[in-house]
């Protein structure tokens, strides 16, 4: 039974995010920085009279800070709302989750977040679990 996945681009790569985990997709406005917080935390933003913690997905995956990204995928983890910045959002479609092909070794944070592969018109797209990218939860 295929599930719905959001296909997004993060750090120049296509990723698939399970749609059940996603509350909404938004464009983030002003971000209030959080000094002393880990680099993964870009800051706080307002979303319909709610404060969300903005996560720089690219940093969370081990990349450099991405200043331009404004579009974000909102999810809820342990009662807190997080907005994960993504470069672009391409598509929503149903896919069958396939296990990672044997021998495919993901590096660093990607391996933490990687859950499997979906086949998008012949292109393999990594399914990532946003929960695994929430700092403090991964560090704990």
């Amino acid at each position: 039974m295929p599930d719905l996945y959001l296909i997004a681009h993060v750090a120049g790569r296509a990723v698939a995010i399970e749609s059940a985990a996603v509350e909404s997709v938004v464009d983030i406005g002003d971000i209030t920085p959080v000094p002393r917080a880990p680099a993964t935390v870009r800051g706080l933003a307002t979303l319909r009279s709610r404060v969300v913690t903005v996560i720089d997905t690219q940093v969370a995956l081990g990349g450099n800070a991405e200043a331009k990204a404004r579009r974000a995928v909102v999810t809820q983890v342990d009662g807190h709302h997080y907005a994960f910045l993504v470069d672009t959002l391409d598509d929503i479609a149903a896919f069958d989750l396939q296990p990672l092909a044997a021998g495919v070794a993901l590096d660093g944070a990607w391996s933490e977040a990687g859950r499997g592969i979906v086949d998008r018109d012949g292109e393999p797209v990594l399914v990532i679990d946003l929960t695994a990218l929430v700092p403090a939860l991964t560090a704990a």
């Binding site: 917080a37 933003a45 929430v134």
Partner: peptide, 21 residues
């Protein structure tokens, strides 16, 4: 969020009238 609390200097967050967290 835990990541923010972990900075050790915050007790929480709020949304004042200004609309900026």
């Amino acid at each position: 969020a835990p990541a923010v609390m972990r900075a050790g200097v915050y007790a929480g967050q709020t949304l004042p009238d200004s609309g900026r967290p």
